[in-house]
Amino acid sequence: MELVINGDRLEIPNKVETIYNLLQHFELEQKVVIVEWNDMILEKELHQETQLCDGDKIELVHFVGGG
């Protein structure tokens, strides 16, 4: 499946079916992440149930503490 993530077109393995799977794929599932899916901010409760489609546009921003 091809997704546009943070502006880059990326080929993602087909086993990645949901937003939650995508966060796992990038090892972000344990972090506090803001997810924008096709220009809409997705609440955390919807990560598991939101199915990905070819061409979806996703922005991922995760919080870090260092400085």
Partner: peptide, 20 residues
Amino acid sequence: KLVSFDLWKNQHAAINVDKV
């Protein structure tokens, strides 16, 4: 916008978070 970047992976993201 909320902005993040990764200078080594050449990534940049910006999200309008007003609705949050």
